[in-house]
């Protein structure tokens, strides 16, 4: 894929991630990790080649299909994309509201989740008043609140301490255990090493599978 008339930022990528798998994407800054995730969460379309999601060719999706597919995907964006004018609680509840659920159905769940990520005392706070790590945890809460079938996390542990990083990682593992396909783009070599999960290594837009478990092409 490419941005506008720019050069290809991803090329020769061929991979297939089975349902329920757990992958890391690693690689130096600018390698195309975020771009690859954008293809999956339908924020970008490939300039060549095909992307299949939930068994469906993305190119064939209509304007009506896109929202339905996106509701099945949770994303922790690299730049978080929290809404500054909404409280932490409103931010976390966003996907549920958009999906049309009633507040009475999810109030308790949202509060519980926010407490779990350590924001129990900050539910009314707006993102600008949150610390970097708190924002990141809020973005994670928003990404998982709707129990997505696919969870994409772009540098989700960039701003949190090691202990919180492990905690977040365990949340992802728990979601994965319940059936969510998890893909995490990260720099955190320590986390990658510790997890023993398959790694997709990107370098200059090309895929270089690394151990421990080899390619899943």
């Amino acid at each position: 894929m490419r941005y506008g008339r720019g050069p290809d930022v991803l090329s020769d990528i061929s991979l297939s991630l089975p349902r329920g798998s757990f992958h890391f994407i690693t690689g130096p800054s600018g390698a195309g990790k975020s771009s690859l995730l954008k293809l999956i969460y339908l924020a970008a379309r490939p300039s060549a080649g095909t992307v299949r999601l939930f068994g469906e060719d993305v190119a064939g999706m209509t304007a009506r299909d896109l929202p339905r597919a996106r509701r099945r995907i949770g994303v922790v964006f690299q730049d978080l994309l929290l809404l500054d004018h909404l409280s932490a609680f409103d931010n976390a509840a966003l996907p549920l509201r958009i999906a049309g659920h009633k507040p009475s159905e999810y109030r308790g769940d949202v509060a519980e989740l926010l407490t779990w990520v350590g924001l129990g005392g900050r539910m009314h706070a707006r993102p600008p008043t949150l610390a970097g790590g708190e924002k990141q945890r809020l973005a994670i809460a928003r990404a998982v609140v709707n129990r997505p079938e696919i969870l994409l996390a772009d540098e989700p542990t960039g701003n949190v301490d090691h202990e919180m990083a492990l905690r977040i990682y365990r949340l992802f593992v728990e979601l994965n255990r319940l059936g969510t396909t998890v893909i995490i783009a990260t720099h955190d070599q320590d986390l990658v090493a510790r997890s023993a999960r398959p790694v997709l290594h990107l370098d200059k837009g090309r895929l270089k599978p690394l151990p421990p478990q080899g390619p899943t092409t």
Binding site: P67, R71, V75, I98
Partner: peptide, 16 residues
């Protein structure tokens, strides 16, 4: 635009 983008990516329909 930021709000619209987030709503979009979270699965909001154009009509919403």
């Amino acid at each position: 635009r930021d709000v619209v983008e987030v709503l979009h990516l979270t699965g909001a329909e154009d009509g919403q």
